Simulated scan of single mutants.
Amino acid sequence: MFDQEVRTRPDFLTIAKSHRWTRRALLRDIALATLAAASSPLYAQHGDLGIVNPPARLDDFSLVDQQGTKRTLNDFLQQGVTALQTIYTGCGSVCPLQGALFSAIQDRIPQTGSRHPIRLLSIGIDPLSDSPSALRDWLTRFNAGSAWNAATPSLKDVDRMRLQLSGSTLPLGNIADHSTQIYCFDANQMLRYRSADLPSVDEICDVIGKLGRL
């Protein structure tokens, strides 16, 4: 159902020409160029990549969003097709690349042709540090709009949530080696796709577009 081919990622000059030369856009484009040059190393153990068959429904974890509001995972997912990433706000290595990736996807959402709303969700995996104010700063840093939220599970749930997302039964290891995959959910709150680490913008937009037309 989904085209699993990862398209060639654009170089920095191609990306830069397609954006206004604002400071924020320039910083994001530099991050995306770094992402494109990365060899996509395996940052964390995870299960099968690509289409999730059969589709999986995660437990309805309790989360606290960037406004300090308690919400459930399904509360976020039921709003439409959702692309989800795991980050932590104190990360200075791959997480800025992940933020730049979602920022670029956000700009492309109107072009996906989806008949469902498309949402982005950044899940903080360091509950001791990923407070609502830290999540708000994270979203502001990447110019997140209303379709992009962030939330943190409780300390007792965070590892279980990460394992369900990844589909792995292996130990998660150090938080610094967390997965940089993107997890795509359909409009019925079902996990339908797991990307490889640090996927391209084109790959994720292609998947969420197809899910949005189901």
Score class of each variant (00 low, 15 high):
108 R>Q: 15
118 I>W: 00
42 L>N: 14
116 H>M: 06
190 M>G: 07
170 L>A: 05
189 Q>R: 14
165 L>Y: 01
86 T>H: 00
52 V>Y: 06
110 P>F: 00
45 Q>E: 13
42 L>I: 12
57 R>Q: 07
192 R>V: 06
143 N>V: 12
198 L>Y: 01
208 I>Q: 01
210 K>E: 13
191 L>W: 08
194 R>P: 12
52 V>L: 07
112 T>Q: 08
170 L>N: 01
21 W>L: 15
90 G>E: 09
210 K>P: 00
22 T>S: 15
70 K>D: 14
172 L>F: 00
18 S>T: 14
90 G>Q: 11
22 T>I: 07
108 R>D: 12
135 L>C: 06
15 I>S: 13
130 D>F: 05
68 G>V: 05
144 A>K: 02
206 D>A: 12
150 A>C: 06
165 L>H: 01
18 S>F: 00
199 P>S: 05
174 N>V: 03
189 Q>E: 11
28 R>K: 11
205 C>S: 14
33 A>H: 10
68 G>R: 12
110 P>V: 08
203 E>S: 10
45 Q>H: 13
99 G>I: 03
127 P>R: 09
206 D>M: 04
175 I>R: 03
192 R>L: 04
113 G>Q: 10
159 D>E: 14
168 S>M: 04
22 T>H: 06
183 Y>D: 01
92 G>P: 00
109 I>V: 14
16 A>Y: 11
56 A>S: 11
66 Q>P: 01
185 F>V: 06
123 I>C: 07
46 H>W: 01
212 G>S: 08
132 P>W: 09
179 S>A: 04
183 Y>P: 02
48 D>H: 11
13 L>C: 08
29 D>N: 15
64 V>W: 03
27 L>F: 06
45 Q>W: 10
109 I>E: 04
58 L>Q: 12
122 S>Y: 06
50 G>L: 09
210 K>G: 06
170 L>C: 01
36 A>P: 09
138 W>A: 00
37 A>E: 14
152 T>C: 15
120 L>Y: 03
17 K>Y: 03
168 S>Q: 04
24 R>D: 14
122 S>F: 07
56 A>Q: 15
85 Q>K: 02
97 L>H: 03
168 S>D: 05
44 A>D: 10
94 V>I: 12
78 Q>M: 11
212 G>D: 08
83 A>H: 07
108 R>I: 00
80 G>M: 08
186 D>V: 02
152 T>S: 14
166 S>Q: 03
197 D>P: 03
118 I>C: 08
59 D>C: 07
71 R>A: 12
123 I>T: 09
54 P>I: 11
